[in-house]
Amino acid sequence: MALDLGTARTRSLAVGGPAIADRPSTIVRRSSTSSGRDVVQPIRHGMVADPGACLRLVRMAVQDTLHYDPRPLEQVLAGVPVAASPSDRRAVRAAVAEIAGCEVWLVEEPLAAAVGVGLDVINPQPCLLLDVGAGIVEAVAIKQGAVTDAVALQFSATTSMGLTAHTLENVVDMTAGLLRRLPATSRRATRARGVVVTGGGAHQELLLRRLRATLRLPVSAAPQPQHATVRGLMRLCLQPDLAAGLALSAR
């Protein structure tokens, strides 16, 4: 099973499943201060903020996939941000392992997204990817199966059109900074390949235009960019040797 726990949406897919299960990353529970109910966000900035609510969210995601394939799970590949701390990663692994009852491998989400959109992540020349989620944006350079450089921006304010103007400019600036740090020997080849944008924020045309104008290189939104990470995780489920090479070492 592939599992993408996002700040706004959680997506899952079982091997052989007919479609990606996509649900809001919210939990409704009884209020501790009144007779009403609270809406809780278990995931913030792509990381576990409420372990108890996260367990419920993972349980619902697993149930979504088992609806199509009731066989017991043997392995789950789950995404985590590059910026996730060791404790953040342990929290994801613990929640998924408790509910799924099987081995859990963690893969950095931009790396999974790169696999999901078909980038050659094993190439010795870096490729650039910008993953724009609801609570965290990560710009990464990937080569030889690993994220070799990364910058991240966490935020909470969005509009109906996507990133706020201030956040959007910060994303453009941090991506430009990542580009400037590329080794001189590979900069030209990497610039020629351009930047691929994934995540729901890739639908924001203004962001794409500002990136092109500032970086002066090709910038393209991936097809169905919001599903890039879960698609990449599923491709890795089907290629266990590659998954073993890309997964974070602490399992």
Rank of each mutant, 00 (worst) to 15 (best):
L5Y: 04
G6I: 00
T7C: 02
T7M: 00
T10W: 01
T10M: 04
S12G: 11
L13M: 10
L13V: 10
A14D: 07
V15N: 10
G17S: 07
P18D: 07
A21Q: 07
I27Y: 07
V28A: 08
R29D: 10
S32L: 10
S32N: 09
S34F: 05
G36A: 14
G36I: 07
I43H: 02
R44F: 04
R44K: 13
P51Q: 11
C54H: 09
C54F: 10
L55T: 13
L55Q: 14
R56D: 13
Q63R: 14
L66Y: 06
H67L: 11
Y68M: 08
D69A: 15
D69F: 13
D69G: 11
P70R: 02
L73Y: 14
L73C: 15
Q75P: 10
Q75S: 12
V80R: 03
V80F: 03
P81D: 03
P81I: 02
P86L: 03
S87N: 09
R89N: 03
V92S: 01
V92P: 02
V92N: 00
R93V: 03
A94H: 07
E98R: 11
I99P: 01
G101W: 05
E103Q: 15
V104W: 05
W105I: 08
P110N: 09
A114E: 02
A114D: 04
G116Q: 11
L119N: 00
D120T: 00
I122C: 12
Q125Y: 11
P126F: 00
C127Y: 08
C127F: 08
L128K: 00
L130I: 12
D131L: 14
D131F: 08
D131Y: 08
V132D: 02
I136H: 02
I136M: 02
I136Y: 04
I136R: 00
V137M: 13
V140W: 02
V147Q: 02
V147F: 01
F155R: 00
F155Y: 00
A157P: 08
T158W: 06
S160W: 07
L163I: 06
H166A: 15
T167F: 00
T167G: 06
V171H: 08
R180D: 07
P183I: 05
R188N: 12
R188W: 06
A189H: 12
A189C: 10
A189I: 08
T190I: 02
R191K: 08
R191I: 04
A192Q: 09
A192P: 06
R193C: 05
R193D: 04
V195S: 03
V197C: 13
G199K: 03
A202D: 05
Q204L: 11
E205Y: 06
L206F: 09
L208R: 10
L215K: 05
L217H: 03
V219K: 05
P223T: 13
Q224P: 14
Q224I: 14
Q224K: 15
Q224H: 15
Q226S: 14
R231H: 12
R231E: 13
G232S: 11
L233V: 11
L236D: 00
L236G: 00
C237D: 12
L238T: 05
P240N: 07
A243R: 03
A244I: 09
S249L: 14
A250T: 12
A250C: 13
R251E: 11
